[in-house]
C-alpha cells in the first residue's frame, strides 16, 4: 500500500534519512520505533511532502508520489497527525474539524462527515462550540485524530499519539486505530510507548540513524532481544499483548 524505496533526504544540507526502505500492506497497523533523533518524524515529513528528498521514492498503491505536496498527498487519501499539539487554537472544535475537509470540493459531504466523526467522539460534539485551545491536552489529541478521519483516509500517518495522554486515553486512541484498521485503513504510527504499540500492531519497523534496521511482524519484534535491549527497557520477556491493557 505504502512503499518507501531507499529514501534519502534531510533539512537544508543536513541529511537525516540515509536510505529508508520498507513497504506496508493495506489494512494493517505498523509501528515505527527507534531512539530519539533517529529520524522517525522525518520519515513522515518525507512521505507527506514536507521534506527535501534527495533521492529515493515514495509509492502509494504502486503510484510514484515522491515530492508531492501535502495537498496532493491528501488527494491520494493520506492524512498526517504530527507529533505535539496540532490544533488551530482560536477556532472552535467544529471549525477545526471542518479544516480537516478543507480540500474537499463537496462541502455538504464534509458537514455530514463532521457529524459522523462527532458520533465516534461524543466529547467533540459536547464541546463543538468551544475554542480548541480550551480543551485539555488529551481532548486536543482526540480532536486531531478525529480531524484526520474527516476525508475517510486510506493511510494515516500518526506520530506519537500517546504523548501527554493518560493511559486510559492512550487505549482510546489505540482502539480507534484498531477499529480503523479493521475497516481497511492502513496505519503507520510512531510510538515511544513501544511495548504497548507493538502489542496492538501487525508489523514493526526499527529505525536507527536514518535507516531501517529491522522490519518484521510486531509479535516477533516484541520478543526480539535486540529490540528489548534497545527500546523496551530490557524486559522483553514481560512484553506481552496483555501489557497493553
Amino acid at each position: 500500500m505504502l512503499e518507501l524505496r531507499n529514501l534519502v533526504g534531510g533539512y537544508g544540507k543536513i541529511t537525516i534519512l540515509n536510505g529508508v526502505s520498507f513497504s506496508i500492506p493495506k489494512g494493517t497497523i505498523t509501528t515505527m520505533i527507534g531512539p530519539n533523533g533517529a529520524g522517525k518524524s522525518t520519515v513522515f515529513k518525507a512521505i507527506f511532502g514536507l521534506l527535501k528528498i534527495e533521492s529515493g521514492n515514495v509509492l502509494i498503491d504502486g503510484q510514484d508520489v515522491t515530492r508531492q505536496t501535502p495537498r496532493q498527498m491528501i488527494a491520494h487519501g493520506v492524512t498526517y497527525v504530527p507529533q505535539g499539539r496540532n490544533i488551530v487554537p482560536q477556532l472552535s472544535v467544529y471549525h477545526n474539524l471542518e479544516l480537516g475537509g478543507v480540500t474537499a470540493p463537496d462541502q455538504d459531504k464534509v458537514k455530514q462527515r463532521i457529524e459522523t466523526v462527532m458520533d465516534q467522539f461524543p466529547m467533540l460534539r459536547e464541546f463543538r462550540n468551544r475554542k480548541a485551545v480550551e480543551l485539555s491536552g488529551g481532548q486536543q489529541k482526540q480532536l486531531e485524530v478525529a480531524r484526520a478521519l474527516l476525508l475517510d483516509p486510506k493511510l494515516i500517518l500518526i506520530d506519537e499519539p500517546s504523548i501527554g495522554l493518560s493511559p486510559v486515553l492512550v487505549q482510546e486512541v489505540f482502539k480507534t486505530l484498531i477499529r480503523l484498521r479493521d475497516q481497511g485503513v492502513t496505519i503507520l504510527m510512531v510510538e515511544q510507548n513501544a511495548k504497548a504499540a507493538l502489542a496492538m500492531s501487525d508489523y514493526g519497523i526499527v529505525l536507527e540513524l536514518g535507516q531501517t534496521r529491522m522490519h518484521d511482524k510486531a509479535s516477533n519484534l516484541l520478543v526480539d532481544p535486540r529490540v528489548g535491549q534497545l527500546f523496551l527497557g530490557g524486559h522483553v520477556e514481560e512484553a506481552s499483548p496483555a501489557d497493553a491493557h
Binding site: F48, L50, P70, R71, I74, Y80, P82, N86, I87, V88, P89, Q90, L91, H95, E98, L99, G100, V102, T103, Q107, R147
Partner: peptide, 21 residues
Amino acid sequence: RTGRSMQAAAQNPAVAEILGV
C-alpha cells in the same frame, strides 16, 4: 470558510499546511 482558513494560516501555519490549506 476562506476566512477561517486565513485564521488557521495565521494561528498555526504548519497545521494549516498539513490539512491542505
